[in-house]
Amino acid sequence: MISNKSLLIYGFGNPGRQDDGLGIMLAEELRAWSAENQFAFVHTDSNYQLNLEDAANIAGHDVVVFADASREDIPDFLMEPLKPSGKVEFSMHAVSPAFVIHLCGHVFNAHPQAYLLHIKGYEWEFMAAMTEKAKSNLGLAVEHLKKFISGNFVTFP
């Protein structure tokens, strides 16, 4: 099974703050799954938060899926296409996924197709343990992303 596209799954958040680590955990699970299936076209990365250098990190990929914990009023998870945005955030010590792809376009003239996968979280204290409900949401998001990858990127030679 191969794909001629390069796919990056980029989880961000702080795993030391309970459900804030959902994006990181998703990237980790997809890394193991793609290794097991020998999907060399799937790449993973993670960090506490996104910043300028991520414009360079995503520039070489065709498709990028950013994964983050969400405290918004959403279902268990939500995956949506992402459009570039030059909107300046309140804190520029971290930037939004939309800003990263916007910067990538301007600086590297690269325009990967991008998605943002929100996974609903509930607790954000100084603990490593995620809540049970967040773990359940993570499982659903992982399955959704596996299907998304298998359905859109995997072809049989």
């Binding site: 910043n51 300028l52 250098e53 414009a55 360079a56 990190n57 910067l103 600086v107």
Partner: peptide
């Protein structure tokens, strides 16, 4: 470009 790559 310099800012992005130095940070990286």
């Amino acid at each position: 470009v310099q800012g992005v790559m130095m940070r990286k």
